[in-house]
């Protein structure tokens, strides 16, 4: 309820500091970035306006670009595929554990750690056995020596090693979100369903699922945002290598702009990223509005 009648000056004084920082740091750079995407510029010297040439090169002549888009999408897909597992864990926690706080807190522990700690920890775990890597040492110890490999430097497996770390880190977050969602379903609803003969997983199918669809949406958005944050993790663990085998959109952008000094080209990738994000937001919202209408 907006009740206070105040002068324009007061409103300005309350809102302006916030808006100024926000525009200067978020909106201005995005606009600059959209414009620089149309330039041939190394960031220092003079720039030439080249229109959509950067985008043409990006879409049709860049051998790294589409694979990196694919990997970014795969990151989202894997993160979303984790949500049902998290929901399953949450249902089990709710049904079989009376004091789940310890378990939930343990699952959540990796979420609060910096991507640097997580990335370097897993780099150490993935190291060859001769360098003290735990994973390979375990494989050798249980007689699967043929499975041991250099997890982050073999192009064929490096990307999957990265997906796994992200899944490992965020399982606790998804579980906690689903668990909170389920805990908010009133116990009377389940009670009533039990009287009507719906128990166990049948109750989950007809009660839990429909009631936590909004929670699903949160998880999906989180998985999507998380897959963009894969940027930091890839930078810490492989930097996009070996031979671009683990490049995602944002690392490609980073390498183009900060390593190859192709400022204009890097900006066109950044513009692409912004557009993808906005489209994805609209799509996710649309799909969930439909879903919620159908189930409620």
């Amino acid at each position: 309820m907006n009740v206070l009648k105040v002068s324009r000056l007061t409103i300005t004084a309350f809102v302006l500091p916030c808006l100024l920082i926000y525009f200067g740091i978020v909106f201005v750079p995005i606009v600059v970035s959209l414009y620089s995407g149309l330039l041939d510029w190394n960031g220092i010297g003079t720039s030439t306006f080249v229109g959509l040439d950067n985008f043409k090169n990006l879409f049709f002549h860049d051998p790294i670009f589409w694979p990196s888009v694919k990997r970014t999408l795969m990151f989202s897909v894997f993160s979303m595929a984790e949500i049902p597992l998290a929901l399953f864990v949450a249902i089990l926690l709710r049904r079989y554990v009376r004091k789940p706080n310890f378990l939930v807190s343990s699952y959540f522990l990796p979420v609060i750690l910096s991507v640097v700690i997580i990335g370097q920890l897993w780099k150490t775990i993935y190291n060859p056995a001769s360098m003290g890597g735990m994973l390979n040492q375990i494989l050798i110890a249980i007689g699967l020596e043929s499975w041991s490999r250099s997890w982050l430097t073999e192009p064929a497996v490096a990307m999957y090693s990265l997906y796994f770390v992200a899944l490992w880190q965020y399982l606790g977050y998804h579980t906690l979100i689903q668990f909170t969602g389920i805990s908010n379903v009133p116990a009377e609803v389940y009670e009533a369903a039990r009287i009507d003969g719906a128990e166990g997983f049948k109750a989950d199918r007809y009660i839990t699922f429909p009631m936590i669809i909004p929670i699903f949406k949160i998880s999906i958005v989180l998985a999507f945002i998380g897959s963009l944050q894969a940027f930091d993790m890839v930078m810490v663990m492989t930097g996009g290598g070996p031979a671009n085998a683990t490049d995602v959109i944002s690392t490609h952008m980073y390498n183009m702009s900060f390593k190859s000094m192709q400022y204009g080209y890097g900006s066109s990738i950044a513009s692409f990223l912004v557009v993808v994000c906005l489209i994805a937001t609209v799509v996710i919202n649309y799909v969930f509005n439909k879903l919620e209408k159908r189930f409620t």
């Binding site: 206070l4 105040v6 409103i11 978020v26 909106f27 750079p29 900006s267």
Partner: peptide, 27 residues
């Protein structure tokens, strides 16, 4: 406050939540 543009300002900030931070690094 009772003023016309409150919801517009809020919307501006909501859009900001969808903008990936990486895209602003270079500029």
């Amino acid at each position: 406050f009772r003023w016309r543009y409150g919801q517009v300002v809020l919307l501006l900030f909501l859009i900001g939540m969808m903008i990936p931070m990486q895209a602003t690094l270079l500029p």
